[in-house]
Simulated assay, not measured.
Amino acid sequence: MKNIGLIGYGVIGKRVADAINAQDDMNLVGVCDVISDWRIQNAVRKNYNIYAATPDAEKTMKDAGISVVGNMMDLLDKVDLIVDCTPKNIAAQNVKIYKEKGIKFIVQGGEKHETTGHSFSAENNYNSALNLDATRVVSCNTTSILRTLTALKKAGLLDYARGTLLRRATDPWESHLGGIMNTMVPERDIPSHQGPDAQSVDPDLDVITSAVKVPETLSHLHYWNVKLKKPTTKEEVLNAFKKSTRIKFIQYDQGLVSNNTIKEMYLDMGRPWGDMYEVALWEDMLKVVGDELFYAYVVDNQAIVIPETIDAIRALTGIETDAAKSIAKTNKSLGIN
């Protein structure tokens, strides 16, 4: 049983907190943030111990009637590992503190690879993270790229891959603050950052991505054109993808024709927040032409990295040295079949 602390109780943080709480080999010591509004109040209702990141935050929390059990340093003194889910660039500042205190830590994909020197995807490089001091769980889009391409690579099918990403404009809960309307915004650089990011986990991947920001908030949509190492069949490709427990086949002809219908299905399944931890890949859209593969899938930007983070905790702390066992344990706890 390892004691785990969480810094940042936002879109990812609240999901990581619940996921840690669902494990039988780790203990959530508490969550730390600067907010005192409805978000952290939900953490109080879940009986999570609340820590204030700053003195000003502690005063504001107490004024709001939130019971604060300590500050950030108090939390760090009680944990074996910290998961930092703070907004982009804040974690990089916190890293100095973690290193000074000799605490293992995990950051999320908004930070640069150089922040930790190791980037993580459970089905690809779990073993290389064993007992490290730190890792970075790569972004939602990069996680999906690694899951699908790693499955093809393990089957000996992958030569190179070219993908187009249609990226959601902002997170749903803050779409009133920004995002885009009635337009699409292409990323200027090709490759977009997701391809090189995937190579930070697996340098051998020959992958190039391009990305377009679109006016919606539910998820990302990817289109992929993959050059296979040999002419093959659709059945062989599907069998390769089936080796990943975190790729879910969906059927276009069963009414799953859009990201909102897929979201509705996961809500009906009873997943918290309708979360989709898997890559939802259209089986009946997938096409193989000789040695070329074409497929498309949807990525839940708020949920896909949650199981990866749990596996990263096990790898860094060494409580499970077998990747397959950790993945299976995480899957069972989160209802991934």
Results as ranks from 00 to 15, higher is better:
residue 18 D to A: 15
residue 249 F to V: 05
residue 286 L to A: 04
residue 235 E to F: 06
residue 167 R to A: 10
residue 71 N to R: 14
residue 150 T to G: 03
residue 297 Y to T: 03
residue 51 Y to P: 10
residue 33 D to Q: 11
residue 333 S to H: 01
residue 181 M to N: 06
residue 271 R to H: 13
residue 120 F to P: 00
residue 168 R to M: 13
residue 217 T to P: 12
residue 90 I to M: 10
residue 216 E to A: 14
residue 182 N to F: 01
residue 151 A to I: 02
residue 124 N to T: 15
residue 289 V to M: 12
residue 226 V to M: 04
residue 51 Y to N: 09
residue 325 K to M: 06
residue 243 K to E: 15
residue 327 I to P: 00
residue 159 D to L: 08
residue 125 N to P: 03
residue 57 A to K: 04
residue 36 S to Y: 11
residue 150 T to F: 02
residue 197 D to S: 12
residue 108 Q to W: 09
residue 19 A to Y: 02
residue 200 S to L: 12
residue 61 M to N: 01
residue 248 K to F: 11
residue 153 K to F: 08
residue 67 S to K: 14
residue 129 A to Y: 03
residue 194 Q to L: 14
residue 185 V to S: 09
residue 231 P to I: 05
residue 212 V to S: 01
residue 152 L to I: 04
residue 9 Y to S: 06
residue 151 A to N: 04
residue 323 A to M: 07
residue 140 C to W: 08
residue 223 Y to V: 13
residue 60 T to S: 15
residue 230 K to F: 03
residue 7 I to M: 08
residue 217 T to F: 15
residue 262 I to F: 07
residue 259 N to D: 14
residue 40 I to H: 07
residue 306 I to Y: 10
residue 83 V to T: 08
residue 327 I to C: 01
residue 25 D to K: 07
residue 18 D to E: 14
residue 10 G to E: 04
residue 239 N to L: 11
residue 54 T to W: 09
residue 211 A to K: 01
residue 16 V to T: 12
residue 48 Y to M: 09
residue 194 Q to S: 15
residue 319 I to F: 06
residue 57 A to W: 05
residue 66 I to D: 03
residue 138 V to S: 01
residue 39 R to A: 11
residue 272 P to S: 10
residue 104 K to C: 07
residue 336 I to W: 05
residue 11 V to T: 15
residue 160 Y to E: 11
residue 330 T to V: 11
residue 53 A to V: 08
residue 178 G to P: 07
residue 95 V to E: 06
residue 144 S to L: 00
residue 151 A to E: 01
residue 106 I to Q: 02
residue 158 L to E: 02
residue 134 A to T: 12
residue 116 T to V: 14
residue 170 T to D: 14
residue 72 M to V: 15
residue 317 T to S: 06
residue 31 V to S: 05
residue 211 A to I: 01
residue 300 D to V: 09
residue 147 R to S: 07
residue 270 G to R: 02
residue 4 I to P: 00
residue 74 D to G: 09
residue 301 N to M: 10
residue 307 P to A: 10
residue 182 N to L: 05
residue 143 T to C: 08
residue 209 T to F: 09
residue 128 S to P: 01
residue 250 I to R: 00
residue 76 L to R: 03
residue 161 A to P: 09
residue 278 E to I: 09
residue 295 Y to R: 05
residue 322 D to T: 13
residue 204 D to Y: 10
residue 146 L to R: 01
residue 228 L to R: 03
residue 160 Y to D: 13
residue 205 L to K: 02
residue 161 A to T: 07
residue 73 M to H: 15
residue 86 T to N: 06
residue 146 L to C: 04
residue 51 Y to I: 13
residue 151 A to T: 02
residue 328 A to V: 04
residue 270 G to K: 07
residue 332 K to I: 00
residue 144 S to C: 10
residue 136 R to L: 14
residue 149 L to S: 06
residue 96 K to D: 14
residue 336 I to P: 05
residue 139 S to P: 00
residue 228 L to G: 02
residue 253 D to C: 10
residue 46 K to I: 03
residue 96 K to S: 15
residue 134 A to P: 14
residue 214 V to K: 00
residue 21 N to R: 15
residue 108 Q to H: 10
residue 335 G to W: 05
residue 282 W to H: 08
residue 234 K to D: 13
residue 273 W to I: 03
residue 219 S to E: 12
residue 23 Q to Y: 00
residue 255 G to A: 06
residue 175 S to R: 15
residue 178 G to M: 06
residue 102 G to N: 12
residue 168 R to D: 12
